[in-house]
Design a protein around this nucleic acid. Structure first.
Lengths: 219, 219
DNA sequence: ATTTTGTCTTTGACGAGTCAAAGACGGTAT
DNA sequence: ATACCGTCTTTGACTCGTCAAAGACAAAAT
């Protein structure tokens, strides 16, 4: 059974592969895991020896089907745990990511089954990220309509928050731009880089890069 | 922050110290953790360097106040988790010990607080083991009345199961001798080593060593 | 008083995961 | 074409937790 370090590598590679067969640079993995480039090279060779990735030196890394399957399992655990922490344990939205980071390597499949059942087999976590499952392989590549690109004046519904960092989640919480909220872009000014939008009777302003982190769908 | 290995050593030493200041032999720790004696010696020296234990070579090991405090914290986590798994996640009584063994090193204090609150601050886990807390330091050394020593014919109530092993818990579950059950020793035959007892209108027979693992109290 | 026995400690080694620093490579600029 | 630059790989070293095997000790047996 893979160690928790191996699981973290696989997960990092998975979330960085746009599509199923995409190649990921070792450098981007190094940055994601906060580890020196040399460490990645070493580790990637070991992952390749275990048949979890394929490695083209100086090219990049690609998950094998086995590696992808394992990574999806870890991602599923992570997102189910986040959902559980918020819905059952009533924990704060912005705390659960780091908690799940530790728990995803300690929770057995047996416990996970119970959690999934108690939550009623949810299909997305509190940030709106999809929860992969054997039958729902991770559609992910959505059309990607965000507050930076959606049609102005039309009402939408927040679907997903694409940035898990503390300060950003704090902002989301403060403004109420959480998944499920109804929102309407009132004005988008390319020159100043500001998006002003309306939630119920409140208003919020955010920069274009930040707006691009909020995915929306039909209201 | 101590690694999970360190936590396991401290916990093993704690549950083997009869009283607060008791000395534990390195051999018994080795057996408990399934590790060679040499490993214990090495590790104990490192624990001593961290101020968590005192080590008299060829004598034994004693927890320092800091070591004991940490060990109690781990034990508290373990038992709260077991309780949570049974009561909230509706898991099987005899599975939860090993699950908790992994989870106790991954769950943060924040999550533990939520679990404790949801359970209503329980004072004992599903096996009847006391849950230590800052205000309830672990009275443990009970009088130790068990089915092997209690007065025959008098009704008692099962308080605690002193053996966490799979087959024994299976037996307990089968006969219904779980904490809370009312029980009466019908006959105790020293010669044959058999204790026959009555639960409601059912009956159960068990050996003397096994009877000594079931602690009882006033009905 | 010596030998035996059982427990504890020391020693040398290993795998996992990591870093720092030096080296190799490939693409861009000149 | 040559030099330069940023990225990737190699190398040597370190920590943690572990083992096997050899050595030291203390208490019991003779």
């Amino acid at each position: 059974m893979p160690t928790s370090t191996v699981e973290n590598y696989l997960k990092a590679i998975l979330v960085r592969s746009a599509d199923a067969g995409a190649v990921v640079s070792t450098g981007s993995i190094a940055e994601a895991l906060g580890v020196t480039p040399g460490t990645i090279t070493t580790m990637v060779k070991s992952l390749a020896a275990q048949g979890l990735v394929e490695h083209q030196p100086r090219e990049g890394v690609r998950l094998t089907p086995a590696g992808r399957a394992h990574a999806l399992g870890v991602l599923r655990k992570h997102r189910l745990i986040e959902t559980f922490l918020v819905q059952v344990l009533k924990m704060d939205w912005k705390e659960v990511h780091e908690e799940a980071e530790a728990l995803e390597h300690a929770i057995s499949d047996r416990v996970l089954l119970r959690i999934d059942a108690i939550l009623g087999h949810p299909v997305s976590d509190p940030h709106g990220d999809p929860i992969p499952s054997p039958k729902r392989p991770l559609f992910d590549r959505g059309k990607g309509v965000t507050l930076a690109t959606c049609e102005p004046q039309r009402p939408f519904r927040v679907q997903r928050i694409l940035d898990q960092s503390g300060p950003f989640l704090e902002f989301i919480q403060r403004t109420g731009l959480k998944p499920g909220a109804r929102v309407r872009v009132r004005e988008r000014d390319r020159a100043s880089g500001v998006v002003r939008c309306e939630l119920g009777d409140a208003e919020a302003a955010l920069g274009l890069p930040e707006a691009a982190k909020i995915e929306v769908g039909a209201a």
